[in-house]
Simulated assay, not measured.
Amino acid sequence: MPAHSRAAVLPELTGDVVDLTAAVCDIPSVSGDETRLADAVEAALKPLGHLEVLRDGDSLVARTNLGRDHRVVIAGHIDTVPIKTNVPTWRETALDGTEELWGRGTVDMKGGVAVALHLAAVLTEPRWDITWVFYDHEEVAADDNGLRRLVANHPDWVSGDLAVLGEPTAGGIEGGCNGTLRAEIATTGRTAHSARAWRGVNAIHAAGEILDRLRAYTPREVDVDGLVYREGMSAVGVTGGIASNMIPDRCVVTVNYRFAPSLDPAGAEAHVRELFDGFDIEITDLAGGARPGLDDPLVQSFVESVTGVTGGAPGPKYGWTDVARFAELGIPAVNFGPGDPMLAHADDERCAVEEIRSCARALHTWLA
Rank of each mutant, 00 (worst) to 15 (best):
D223T: 13
A7C: 02
V107T: 15
S262N: 13
G171V: 12
E99S: 12
S159N: 12
H193K: 06
R71N: 09
I210M: 05
G319K: 05
E209Q: 12
V306N: 02
I281C: 07
V236Q: 02
T93D: 06
N86G: 04
D69A: 15
A260N: 02
F279V: 13
D223V: 12
G175Y: 07
E99F: 04
P265N: 04
E354H: 10
T169E: 09
A43H: 03
A287F: 04
T191D: 01
I247P: 00
A186W: 00
V238D: 02
T106V: 10
T64K: 06
V61G: 06
A324R: 15
A3Q: 06
V158Y: 03
L286W: 06
E125A: 11
A152C: 00
F336H: 09
F134E: 09
V222M: 07
H193P: 04
S194A: 15
A23I: 10
L227W: 03
R199L: 15
T187I: 10
P219A: 04
V299L: 03
E328P: 00
W198M: 01
F276V: 06
P265H: 07
V122Y: 03
R196K: 05
G288I: 07
T80P: 07
P341V: 11
D19Y: 01
A121C: 12
A362E: 07
D108L: 04
G337D: 09
G103L: 11
F302S: 03
Y257P: 00
D69Q: 12
P2K: 05
D58A: 14
T106Y: 14
A142H: 07
G240I: 07
L150R: 05
G97M: 12
L45P: 00
M109G: 07
T307Q: 04
V252R: 08
G278Q: 10
T131C: 14
I242P: 00
S262V: 04
I331S: 01
R68V: 05
R104D: 13
E174C: 11
A116S: 15
G278V: 12
G278A: 09
G172P: 00
A243M: 01
N153H: 13
I130M: 05
A170N: 14
L13K: 08
D136Q: 14
E92L: 04
G179S: 07
R36A: 13
L147K: 03
D249V: 01
R291N: 07
D285G: 01
T64I: 06
T89W: 06
D296M: 02
R196M: 08
V30A: 11
D16Y: 12
F336R: 03
A368V: 12
A38H: 05
A94N: 10
P168A: 05
V323W: 01
P47F: 10
G103I: 13
D58E: 14
A186L: 02
W366G: 00
T169K: 06
L162S: 02
S29N: 09
F326C: 04
K110V: 11
W366F: 14
L329R: 07
V299H: 01
P265G: 10
T35V: 06
W128E: 13
L54N: 08
E34M: 12
L181Y: 07
A207T: 11
L60R: 05
P261S: 08
T310P: 00
C359N: 11
I242C: 00
A152I: 04
G76A: 09
V9R: 15
N145D: 14
